[in-house]
């Protein structure tokens, strides 16, 4: 059962596509290209809208042509920074803490769990893996209130930990890590290290972890984006607005009750600023994806 699973996953694991592919160059089909262009426009137009809208003043926002930029970007940013003594930047810092710490912890836990599930045989392994797969199917949103009630019993709500702890365990990340571990860490290497007398924890930290690095970067990015964009969990967990991440904070600027106008210009400028770290992170970590998954392993 487990062996078939691991061979199957080995096949589907990403490989370096450039390796030895000089045989055929496929001609692009106009239909496929057309579909991709429509898809790209579908994804990019909202981004263009945010960029254009963030340069407009409140009066222009709903009256001037939608995608026509204006000149008020810096006014909007200054107003955003001035709002309640710069609490927006506190929210950005909080988001960075939640997403940074959460993604690193989650990646490490996922790597460990995935490695163990891929390389060890122990009673109940199939059951653990089945439960994890079930977990992939359960949306995190519906767990937020049960998690709130549990953390309330520990007295941990309304704290950084309330948002960090539930996001460290991600079934999908563990599932991915298992696939990468099965594909990238040859069992021979693990056994060779064992024969040399290395402790299991050392094998994981010194040998398996570096081999899994490209896969882990994917998981890290994945988790970082998931935590950064998460709204429901911090929304339920936190009452103190100095602990809010940027998502929850900006939502508050739109919902100030019927008697106060929504602060659209600030929210749009804030949304623009809040995606910049994600863009930056992707650009910086992109190069890791080019590293071959098997880099460092013994050649067969």
């Amino acid at each position: 059962m487990t062996t078939t699973a691991s061979t199957r996953t080995r096949v589907t694991a990403p490989r370096r596509s450039s390796a030895g592919s000089s045989a055929t160059t496929l001609r692009p089909s106009p239909i496929a290209t057309g579909i991709l262009i429509i898809g790209a426009l579908y994804c990019l137009i909202p981004v263009v809208w945010v960029v254009a809208a963030s340069t407009k003043s409140a009066g222009e926002l709903f009256s001037s042509f939608t995608l026509l930029p204006s000149t008020h970007l810096f006014d909007n940013l200054a107003q955003l920074s001035a709002y309640r003594d710069g609490i927006f930047w506190r929210w950005m810092l909080n988001s960075a803490i939640y997403a940074g710490v959460g993604a690193i912890a989650s990646t490490w836990v996922s790597a460990l769990a995935g490695y163990v599930l891929a390389k060890f045989t122990f009673p109940g392994k199939a059951a653990v893996f089945s439960i994890l797969l079930t977990g992939v199917l359960v949306p995190g949103v519906i767990l937020a209130i049960p998690q709130y009630l549990l953390l309330a019993q520990l007295g941990l709500t309304n704290s950084y930990l309330a948002v960090l702890l539930p996001q460290i365990i991600s079934p999908y990340a563990i599932y991915l890590a298992r696939i990468y571990a099965a594909a990238a860490v040859p069992t021979d290497v693990v056994e060779a290290a064992r024969t040399e007398g290395a402790k299991e924890f050392t094998i994981f930290n010194r040998i398996a972890l570096p081999m899994m690095l490209p896969g882990l970067v994917t998981i890290l990015l994945f988790q970082f984006v998931a935590v950064w964009n998460n709204f429901m969990l911090p929304y339920i967990m936190l009452g103190n607005d100095t602990l809010f991440p940027v998502t929850v904070g900006l939502s508050g600027l739109l919902n100030q009750g019927a008697s106060a106008p929504s602060m659209y210009t600030l929210v749009i400028a804030g949304a623009l600023v809040s995606v910049l770290p994600l863009v930056l992170l992707f650009l910086l970590l992109q190069r890791f994806w080019r590293v071959d998954l098997a880099a460092g392993a013994v050649k067969a």
Binding site: A152, Q153, Y235, G239, S251, G257
Partner: peptide
């Protein structure tokens, strides 16, 4: 957040016994 959300949040916190 004004309106309904804050009420839902309050009732959840009361049910949990803290927060």
């Amino acid at each position: 957040d004004g309106g309904d959300p804050v009420i839902t949040k309050l009732l959840t916190a009361l049910k949990a016994g803290s927060g």
